[in-house]
Structures are given as C-alpha cells and as structure tokens.
Design a protein around this nucleic acid. Structure first.
Lengths: 224, 224
DNA sequence: CTTGACATAGAACATTTGTTCCTTCTATAA
DNA sequence: TTATAGAAGGAACAAATGTTCTATGTCAAG
C-alpha cells in the first residue's frame, strides 16, 4: 500500500485550487486553469502532480475527460489540518500489467507511483492494506485462472505462500507468469499448481523453478 | 425572474439529465452526453435547447467552456431535484444467489432489500447506480463466463440488451440461467450468446426462448 | 395550400483541453 | 564527481467538446 506520503506545498496548493474553483463555478478547473491559479506554468507539471495525488487516493480523475476530476470527501478536510481521516475505502495503485510472457512488475521497482493509475475499493475487499497493489491483465493467457483481458488483479506482495493461496508466480524455465492455487504436499519434491478452473489439470513445479511474486487477494472486472 | 414559459418534455428531460449527471460525477455533462442521456441525437439540438433554457434563467452557461454549465438553485427544486451529498461509494444490495438451474432473484421481488447483505464499491465501478444489485454465484456452472463459485456479480436490471452486453438470462426450455455476451445479428432468427472464454463456442437461442434478466456490469472476487 | 416560427438532424469546423515527449534542474547517494 | 530519481518546464500533438451552417420536419395561422 502507499504510505500516504506527505504532500508538497505545491500539491496542497493544487488541492486548494480545485476545491475553491469547483465551489465558485460549479464545475472543476482545467489543467491549465489549475496551473494559472497555483502558479505553475506547465500543463505537464500539473498533470504530473495530479497523478501523484490520484495515486494517493486524494482525488479521482476520469481519463480523457475534460475537467474530469473531483476531490474525495475526506480530502477537503485533510487539506485544512493534519486530519488523517480514517477511511472505509482505500486506493490501490495499479503498478502495471500482467501478461503471459512478462515478469510481474514489482511494487518496489517503482518510479512508478507517479504514473500509476489507481483503483478504489472498500477496505473489506483487501483486509490489511499493507503491501497491496494491483495489476491489469493483458491477453487471455490467464483464462484457466478465470481471469480475462482487462481484469484488475489485486495482489499482496509476499514471497512465500500457504496451501490454498492463489499466487502469482514466475516459472523460470518456461519464462512464464502464471496465476494458480499453491499446494505443497509433504513428501513431494514438487509443488502442485492448481488452476481455478476445475476442468483443468494441475501442473507440478520444482520449488527452485518457481518465483512467488505475491498472493492474489482479489479480482475486479468491469464490463460497462 | 423571467417570463417562465412552459418547458417542453425534452427540456425538462435535459434539466434532469444535467442534475443527475452532475450529482453522479461531480461535474456537468458535455453537450453530447446530454444528448445521449436525453435521447437527442444532434448536438445542435441540445445546444439550441440549452440556449432556450438559459434565456429563461434556468441555467447558466459559460461560453466556450467545456462542461461550463450549471443549474440555478431554484431550478433544482422546480424539477424536483433530490440534492443529496454526492457519495464516492455506493452500497449495493446482494439480493440472492445465482446458480445453474435456478431463476434469478428479481430486484423488485423485494421484501428482500431489508435482509439483503450488501457490498460496497467505488462509484466508478457501476457508473449510474440506478437499478443496480448484486448476486452471489453458487456452483461452477458459470465457468465459461469466467465466473466461479463465490464470486459476486454486479447487475443492472434491464430487459433488453445491446450487442456486446454481458447479460444474465433465463433460457426457458432448458430451465437454465446463463451469463453470456449478447449478439443479435440482423437477418438471423436467433440471438447469439457468446461465452467470455474465447475457447468456447457460442450458443444460439430464439428470442422467445430467452428471458433477459439484466446486464452484468461487474464481477468481484475475493480470495483472502 | 402556403407561410413562417419553432424544433430537429447531421455534418463540418474551431476551440478547448488532456496527453506525451524531450529537456532541464536539483538533491541525494554511490 | 558521477549517477540516478524526482520534479519541473515547454512545445507539439491528439482527443474531447462547443459552435455554426444547412437542410428538413411540424404545426398552426393566414
């Protein structure tokens, strides 16, 4: 999860500008208007800071929509004082994509937070928000995990797994990423990776050939 | 105030659309969005009507500003505007279960709303919250829709579908519930129902044998 | 039937506005 | 110092969005 970093002076100013402008006109400002009012000359810098703010869950942005942004309710108060509002919802950064032949993006290999989209979910969706991030699925190679192109997979970064966990793993000698349930049976040299689809057969992999990247804790699919 | 002529049906509708849209997204709609939502195909007609409404003092428009319009306060009441605080999250009632051989619970067959569990999601997950409800999936009969036992399906109640919609339908003579993408090709007597899993074949059903129960707008799976 | 105000469509156009890319600057760690 | 990531600036670009123009349809008054 994102450790709710401190806001820069400029970012606070941007939030104030959005709040005041929206209040005054009844609709949100454009990037250029934010820039003018906050004393930033470049649209890209405003855009950059909006991404950071969005990744922190302080505002929501609708892509490719003019004036398509709004502050989260809590944000309004938060920029007044240091009221760290405990929210029932959390914002999870989408660190990148997951596809068949590509290694998974790692949560620490960031430089990414700024570019990250994010997805907001109810807290009960993830339990403990520590080390949680999300990936967007590309291609239909995860069909046997009942996961399709465009789905968002919510992950917890961890390197070991317990029996029954759905994990994301990199199988070294096949150079492939896979999502399967993890089972280790005492006495066996290999771990069993079981597809979510009960009609499909498990595969067996030697532990040394397996790089566990994290545990899948949820899947979200939008179809509208 | 001004002469306050009577509004046409269409103009009232436009005001409602603006009110609802603004409520939902936190910013006003574009001319094209108003057109779509109010059933007007031409941007110029929307523009024309906005001018009329503006002349009557019902709304304010800022020239050359995208989404630059807002309703006058009085207008909201005039058209019966329920101005609630816009919430970033909504709570969707889980009306029951969906399984292979069982008809879907209907949103109106209530008495249910009271005992319903509910699931909370970010507003952007569902778009317009009208007629939205959720069902819990039982059994693995929806595997070909990439939906498994325990998943939560978020639905919008509607009885017609557009091409490409993922729908929940009751196939009468098979007494079965199914989730598939809907395609109706002109010239064909049957509609094509396409599984989400691209490896599986579509089925063809006569429209009279099909009871569309709603549109699937999202799927949520928890695995922790 | 014709006329004219009002309403509607559709398309072309112009402006607004978000995005991307390349460069520069700064601060911190190796 | 040199390298590296974060932050910023500027310009070109592409997409979204408002405006305008022309043609068509409706309906009531003459």
């Amino acid at each position: 999860m994102v450790g709710q970093a401190r806001l820069s002076k400029r970012q606070t100013r941007i939030l104030e500008v959005i709040r005041d402008y929206t209040e005054e006109y009844g609709y949100p400002p454009t990037i250029r208007e934010i820039g003018d009012l906050a004393g930033v000359s470049s649209t890209s810098v405003v855009s950059y800071n909006l991404k950071v703010l969005q990744a922190q869950g302080l505002l929501v942005r609708d892509r490719d929509v003019s004036r398509g942004l709004r502050l989260i309710e809590d944000t309004l108060e938060a920029i007044g004082g240091a009221t760290e509002a405990p929210s029932d919802f959390i914002s999870i950064p989408i660190l990148g994509a997951i596809a068949a032949g590509l290694p998974l993006p790692l949560p620490d290999s960031d430089a990414s937070l700024a570019d990250a989209d994010s997805i907001r979910v109810a807290r009960e969706m993830v339990g403990n928000p520590m080390d949680v991030y999300a990936l967007e699925v590309r291609g239909d190679s995860m069909i046997d995990a009942l996961i399709n192109d465009g789905d968002i997979v919510i992950m917890r970064h961890q390197q070991q797994a317990e029996n029954g966990d759905m994990i994301a793993a990199w199988i070294k000698d096949e150079k492939a990423t896979t999502l399967k349930r993890f089972f280790w049976e005492p006495g066996h040299a290999a771990v069993r990776l079981q597809p979510a689809n009960p009609n499909m057969d498990p595969i067996y992999v030697h532990p040394r050939n397996l790089d566990i990247q994290g545990k899948v804790i949820g899947v979200i699919r939008r179809m509208e």
